[in-house]
Amino acid sequence: MELLFASGIGTLVAAGVYLLLRARTFPVVLGLALLSYAVNFFIFAMGRLRTGLAPIVRDGVHEYPDPIPQALVLTAIVIGFAMTAFVLILALRANFDLGNDHVDGRVPEGDA
């Protein structure tokens, strides 16, 4: 499970970074989204990957999953969601105002 999880995060980060470096706003937004998914999984894994544990405190049970990373992930998801919405609107605005979707606001020569 660890290998699958870790390589999943790695793949997401790789794809995210690739898209971020595309220098067009829409791929950049997608890249940011993939990156934030990877980060969320990463935080989640920091509570250790274990299955079949009791989620709620009960008598006679001594093994619980760590609740804190779950709370952290929830916060990170909410914030990431808001930021993605904002950056999408900003990207649209930039596209309308500047007439292209390059992150620098102008398309470099030879890159039509």
Binding site: L35, V39, N40, F42, A45, L90, R93, L98, D104
Partner: peptide, 24 residues
Amino acid sequence: VRAGVHYVVFNLVGSALFLIGVGT
């Protein structure tokens, strides 16, 4: 708007790194 795109994207990448650091 042009400056904003750079600023926002750069800081969002920074936030992702922050979470990786905090998670570690």
